[in-house]
Amino acid sequence: MVISTQNLTFTFGSQTVVKSLSLRVPEGSIYGFLGPNGAGKTTTIKLLLNLLKTQEGSIHIFEKELQSNRIEILSQIGSLIEQPAIYLHMSGKENLLNRALLLGVGEKRVDEMLDLVHLTTAAHKKAGQYSLGMKQRLGIALALLSDPKLLILDEPTNGLDPNGIIEIRELLVKLTSVYKKTVFISSHLLAEIQKMATHVGIINFGELMFQGSIQELEALNKPSVQIETDRSVDAANFLKKNNIDVAEVNDHCVFVPFTSKETMGEINALLNQNGYTVYSINKQQQDLEKLFLAITQHA
């Protein structure tokens, strides 16, 4: 495990922001850390970076206790927390050079990073004149500068246009698949994480609601059968009388939990034989977004 926490708890005054969190982030994964705004994501990240002191529980990164191995661990982490921290009076390149000075990294690496995030042409422009997307890309370049084994990114695609989001996603996938890095990425958008994450943790009100691989999350997501008929409410009542579960009814469709293809055929036949006109019947995967809402609203 690259990151493992045991019963991590953090309180601001009387408010418990993080409740006995036990994260497990395997090596080489893209771990999507999901939760609505204010769920405790940023606090958790600050705890992982030792910006906030651990009050209860423990944090191990690279199998080492964080508090007592702080410098060693931090030297292998690149991070981007909330909006990127950039000195606006300096150019993009100067921002990178300043960080390179602190990390003991050469100028060649700075140029490589500028190239990687497509900022070479804007390298000498003041960062204050950068667009939000450019700032975000500079922030990612800063995080990658020391060639860290673990990247911790807090909402890195905030403010990026669709192209920018795709670029970042491709970059992160490449970093894990080619360079064997581990990425811990937080977001409040499941759809965005779903496209790249290998593992997911869902947090709400400081509590971990789900943790596992993306396949495990998808397995939770049961498919259903969508039936479009001429009289959907009557059809639903009719199906219920025939001992078939109905999950949802609206003016146009009836939703029935999917069990097998055969059952789908039987339902179709049953409705047709009893005077209902079936316009369409098909198997449907529930939207993960709905699942996410269901998990987070469950609390």
Binding site: I71, L74, S75, S79, E82, A85, I86
Partner: peptide, 18 residues
């Protein structure tokens, strides 16, 4: 103010430097 303005406290305190 340099750090307040750029919101860089979190960055300089998460560097691998004491």
């Amino acid at each position: 103010s340099l750090e307040h303005k750029a919101d860089t406290w979190k960055t300089i305190f998460s560097l691998p430097i004491p």
